[in-house]
Amino acid sequence: MENNNRRDFLKKGLTALGAASVVPMLDSCSDKHSNTEKIKVLSPEGKVMEVDKSSVAKLGNFGDYAVREGIPGKKFVMVIDLARCQNAKKCVSSCNKNHLIQTPNEWLKVYSMKDTEDSAPYWQPTTCQHCDKPPCVKVCPVDATFKRQDGIVLIDNDRCIGCRFCMAACPYSTRVFNWGESIPEIEIDSLMMGHHHSPETSVPAQKGTVDKCDFCPDMLAKGELPHCVTACPNSVFYFGDMYEDVVTTGTETVRLSEILEKRAGYRLMEDLGTNPSVYYLPPVDRLFEYEEGLENYEEFKEENAE
């Protein structure tokens, strides 16, 4: 126990040091005035720790937390019900709108899947899987992508050097790269309404860095659900906290363990050992015919399609 405490102390010291050394450099890069004010936050073990104020998001429901550390005592989980998906793509458009994403850089994709020759095709919305053993995080040379204690894998676009090793490591093809400047700078200024870039929002996209689905931590911090969850007209997405054993579509709230058991939930590429935080419910007893989704389906699209 004593040992543990000492380790914790060291850990926090290091984190604080890390935070302190990062901030001035980021500031000098982005020409923002520096803010060295310290703020107290609660660690998950219930101890008070001091971190730099600028690394803390000042948002609501779960109290202040350090963006890089995540919300203490939470472990977010998503369940995607394939039996309800009709490729309406409202999730995609809502995600694009709220993260200022331009096609074809979508973070969220709905794939047309067909597991074997004879089995029926189905629609599979695919977000970042937020793996517990994220291969992308493992290979990042500069801590630009990191795993938080609440299970979310985020990208710090101010840190990313654009080596794209994470994209090579991710078996789910969820990472996208900003090959060029997608939105003109003036436009970004007005869209951002005075907000600065933060790993919490991943907005706006930065040229030469990697982006991906972030589970909308800015919404979660306010106690609200991610954009795709609320946008879906068919309640395909369940979201919740694994420790609470509850997931909700916003209208329907169920026990996570129950729904996974009853509906035989599974995760993508379980054999790779990545331990995703996203579960799928198999497309059985479907609400919609696969064909209904075809009108929204484009196998390929124009490079700069709106």
Partner: peptide, 8 residues
């Protein structure tokens, strides 16, 4: 009470 919605 749960994080996002209450559980009946």
């Amino acid at each position: 009470r749960r994080s996002f919605r209450p559980l009946t």
